[in-house]
Design a protein around this nucleic acid. Structure first.
Lengths: 298, 298
DNA sequence: GCAATAGTGTCTCTAAGACATTATAAT
DNA sequence: ATTATAATGTCTTAGAGACACTATTGC
């Protein structure tokens, strides 16, 4: 430890002993978990494969504020845990999964984002394989439910003004399951004035979502899409053994577009290794099962 | 506002009136600014172009902790400002620039990252054009200096164990100027155990840098590199008019590798528009001046 | 003429996109 | 045989990489 003295003649040791952090303004800090998975909806036709959909876990709030509305799982960061540890703790409370993939996304720090006071929140994205997850939807004290996510850009516009232009993208996020249908709309703007460019996202209509969680979900899914094709994170959402068609469907459901089979297989071939196992009882040609190859190189 | 009642029979309005946020643990929150620019070091030979280098602004700490060591500019987030507003305020205090490019990077929340107590910090990256910046290095109460950044990976290894392997990258970050030479080393690990993959970065040797700022700088530069080729952020570091060689040198200095001229020009041609102006007095053929074209499309 | 940079042409190689063809299980 | 999916072949196109060549200035 440094023996240098400061302007008051204190050593670092002395300084730290006297230091009272509570004399500074202290906001509260929470974590919010964007827990995503891909699940299968079985289809009646014995020949057809199951439909896949991207799902997000939401909690029905039992307390003020936003009582009765839906929110991302999350909670306050404790003084004796890192924000990552808090995120893992919250994740485990919801899913019983110990070492799921978890990635920090963004920190939301607007002054009035929470009506309880100054609360800053760091969002995390967790990707899990729906087969491995042990969730009791609806039976907890907190009501937790998976919602199917549909994300689409329903309008794009470019507005010119004297000093530049604004590109607006209007995004509609539909979150639904058997019983509930939430809808929220977000405007993503890129403001170009002269040489200066800035971005901002605002909630146009938050529906029955709490806080700024619509924004967190939208930004998170957008970030997932961006990383999808340049990384191997998709495999966190896959079972140990999968067919290449299942893998392709997972990509398609996240990117919300169809891919061509031959090209897709060329592209991901490095990331997977084939096994000697096959699917069966499918009403069509059996499919070879693959596994993730963590040794792949770009 | 919702008229629903909670378990205690309170409306949302009542609940919020009674709510005392201070009964929760409250860490403190700071912002740290990774302020980067590209500057020119004139060369004696009248024919040669100036050398470019990537520079980062550091402050010499005048107070405990880490008194006398170097740190990123930054400070506490006030209760009445968003974290972005805090970042802009700190940036303006250092540079007098009002609307520089500013982007949130990452939030650092380890329990003992700051010896003063529980302090969480969100890092921001700001990119500025060195011609437009009005900084008084060394004359402030705080001593601020630009440091040339050299970033290189000096060792890569893959360690196998029973359940998988670990890829380690050892990164050396040299920060220097006429008078000072800081060196810091970071280990970036990718831990693959079975199907699970995790990442973590640790400071191996922090040199004369304060807190975990070595990590913030390294992560920030790494993120700048990743975004460089897929976005137009480089233009925040360029003057209004520039030659294509200057632009290429800027890319090269950030990516730390040489690019081929013809290919580079093909690739960035969409993002720039030529002007009718030329450089002169250069001891070689004059060069056409270009400007950023904010209307470019990918 | 020289040194250094400016600017362009073009060949190759790889990856992406589009589409076609053949194979095979369950009913 | 029918149906739906499995698996692969190949033609075309776009882009990245490598390299060569010509042009122009100040001294």
């Amino acid at each position: 430890m440094s023996k240098k003295l400061d302007a008051l003649g204190l050593t670092e040791e002395d300084f730290l002993r006297e230091y009272d952090i509570s004399k500074f303004d202290q906001p509260s800090l929470t974590v919010d978990i964007l827990l995503l998975t891909i699940s299968e909806n079985k289809v009646d036709n014995y020949r057809k494969l199951a439909n896949k959909s991207l799902k997000v876990l939401l909690i029905k709030r039992k307390e003020h504020p936003f009582i009765g509305k839906w929110a991302l799982p999350g909670g306050f960061v404790r003084m004796d845990e890192s924000i990552e540890a808090a995120a893992y703790r919250e994740l485990k409370e919801e899913t019983n999964v110990n070492n799921a993939y978890l990635e920090q996304l963004h920190t939301y720090g607007d002054v009035d984002r929470d009506p309880r006071g100054r609360i800053i929140s760091t969002s995390f994205m967790s990707l899990v394989n729906s087969n491995e997850i042990d969730l009791n939807p609806g039976t907890d004290a907190e009501e937790a439910r998976w919602f199917e996510v549909e994300y689409d850009v329903y309008k794009k516009e470019r507005l010119f003004n004297k000093i530049g232009f604004i590109d607006n993208e209007y995004i509609r996020l539909c979150l639904k399951n058997d019983a509930i249908n939430l809808m929220t709309e977000i405007k993503a703007s890129r403001v170009v004035s002269g040489k200066h460019v800035s971005y901002n996202h605002t909630i146009e209509s938050k529906g029955d979502l709490s806080f700024d969680h619509a924004l967190i979900i939208q930004n998170g899914i957008s970030s997932l899409r961006n990383k999808l094709e340049s990384s191997d994170i998709i495999f966190h959402m896959m079972p140990d053994l999968f067919t290449l068609t299942e893998l392709q469907n997972s990509f398609e459901v996240i990117l919300n577009k169809k891919l061509l089979k031959a090209n897709f297989r060329r592209k991901i071939s490095k990331m997977v290794s084939e096994t000697s196992q096959f699917t069966s009882d499918a009403g069509h040609r059996p499919s070879k099962l693959y596994e993730f190859n963590p040794l792949w190189e770009d």
